Amino acid sequence: MLNCIIIDDEQFSVDAILKYIELLPKLYVVAIYNNPLKALENVTLENNIDLIFMDIDMPFLSGIELAKALRPKTQKLIFTTSHSKYAFDAYEVEGDAYLLKPFSFGKFSMTINRLFPNETVAKIPEISHGDDYFMVKNKEEDLRIVKVGYKEVIAFESSQNYLKIHLANNKVLTVYLTIKDILELLGSRDEFKQFHRAFVISTDCINYIEGNIVKMNNNLSFTVGESYRENFTSYLSGKLLKTSRKR
């Protein structure tokens, strides 16, 4: 069993790490601190800490400053942050890993296994899939595992630290995944396209296109992103019927 501490002033980030820890039975959370000053005051060698998850950009005391005091009190230190600019500072205070939010469960579990290779840390995928379907854990149903057919999906929508899966029956699943995770899952499935930073859609479920606005069958709509215009135009040119009649 690996004793862990989470230090992060944002509760939603703490909740995200806790969800991942639930999937790894070898990790045990000893304490959670939303205030870095409380962590500085309370974390001691007597806590027998194996691993600290620590945010960097926190009020009163940054994670980099806090690490200088707490690094000798833990075997391993993982920085969890939304900012890549602190990577060198993290190295300077002997951070063992640097996870950029939002990070996937795969990245999380691989990091734990790398730091503790002699521990049997289970690898439980956040997504499992067959030929015609995949399975995810729905946040709105207490992480119940839900089977989803690819043909049921209208769109995947990035929403803060979560991902919404819009289905043809008007149900919306909320999962802790990223657009990158979904693109890896979909692979070469040609019916799914990304025309916006926050959306991956099933082109089979497009209702209509008006200019740069795409309207889906469930009334979800978005404007094609500037960096996706070329791919969008290429898609349209391959699908849009044109007359052979001479003008």
Rank of each mutant, 00 (worst) to 15 (best):
D8G: 06
D8E: 13
D9P: 02
Q11D: 14
S13V: 13
V14F: 04
A16K: 14
I21D: 12
E22T: 14
L24M: 14
P25D: 02
Y28H: 02
V29F: 13
A31R: 15
A31G: 04
I32Y: 00
Y33A: 09
E41G: 13
E41W: 04
N42T: 05
L45G: 07
I49E: 00
I49M: 03
I49P: 00
I52E: 01
M54L: 15
D55T: 11
D57W: 01
F60L: 08
L61T: 08
S62V: 07
L70K: 11
R71W: 04
R71T: 07
P72K: 13
Q75N: 08
Q75C: 05
Q75D: 11
K76N: 11
L77F: 08
S82N: 09
S82E: 04
H83L: 15
A90C: 15
E92V: 06
P102H: 00
R114K: 15
L115H: 09
P117N: 00
P125W: 07
P125N: 15
E126W: 12
E126G: 10
D132E: 10
Y133M: 05
M135V: 15
V136R: 14
K139V: 07
K139S: 03
I145S: 15
K147L: 07
K151R: 12
I154E: 09
L163C: 12
L167K: 09
L167N: 02
T174Q: 04
V175A: 09
L177W: 07
L177T: 06
T178L: 05
K180V: 03
I182W: 04
L185P: 00
S188R: 08
K193H: 11
Q194M: 13
Q194V: 02
F195C: 02
F195I: 11
R197E: 12
A198I: 06
T203V: 09
D204Q: 02
D204P: 00
D204H: 01
C205D: 15
N207D: 08
G211C: 02
I213N: 10
I213W: 01
V214H: 09
V214Q: 05
N217W: 01
N218S: 10
N219K: 04
F222L: 08
E230K: 12
F232P: 01
Y235T: 04
L236A: 06
G238R: 12
L240R: 15
L241P: 04
T243Q: 11
R245N: 08
R245I: 12
K246V: 08
K246L: 15
R247T: 05
